[in-house]
């Protein structure tokens, strides 16, 4: 495996993809998943995020959690750029199935078909899904 990786500053750089599949609230997966993403930024890896299934709701504009008494962490997605995490992919079919378009999302993303996203996953060294 070592020869497949780029070496930078003496360290290994792998392609990490974090796959977000769950709605932002109702379960803790989205929040704790985001915590892993933020930590990964400290390791100088090639990080990308994919959003599919109900995970596309994580990026929905205008989230208001007051009524359910939990923290609205959606602004954190806007801060990812500051961590040099700029590759955000959203599955087209998941958006469409939920009546959403790119304009409903709070960050700039690249919309990919299921097949395209699958091909991209295939290129990764490490896929961690939440």
């Amino acid at each position: 495996m070592m020869d497949e990786m780029d070496m930078e500053e003496g360290g290994v750089v792998k392609k990490f993809m974090f796959v977000n599949r769950k709605a932002p609230h109702g379960t803790i997966y989205a929040l704790e998943g985001l915590e892993v993403v933020l930590i990964s930024a400290a390791f100088d890896q090639d990080v990308s995020l994919a959003f599919c299934d109900d995970g596309v709701y994580e990026l929905k504009k205008g989230q208001d959690t007051k009524g359910i008494g939990v923290k609205n962490f959606s602004p954190t997605y806007r801060a990812l750029e500051g961590y040099d995490i700029e590759k955000l992919y959203v599955e087209k079919e998941s958006l469409e199935a939920r009546g959403l378009t790119e304009d409903d999302l709070l960050v700039d993303v690249q919309v990919l078909s299921s097949a395209e996203l699958g091909a991209l996953m295939d290129e990764q060294d490490v896929v961690i899904s939440f």
Binding site: M1, G11, V12, K14, F16, E35, V36, I39, S40, A42, F43, Q45, D125, V126, I128, S129
Partner: peptide
């Protein structure tokens, strides 16, 4: 810390998730 998970991803040939 969570860094231990990322580090495992870097160091291992395969990171296998059970969830």
């Amino acid at each position: 810390g969570l860094g231990q998970l990322v580090e495992a991803g870097i160091q291992c040939d395969r990171l296998v998730t059970f969830g």
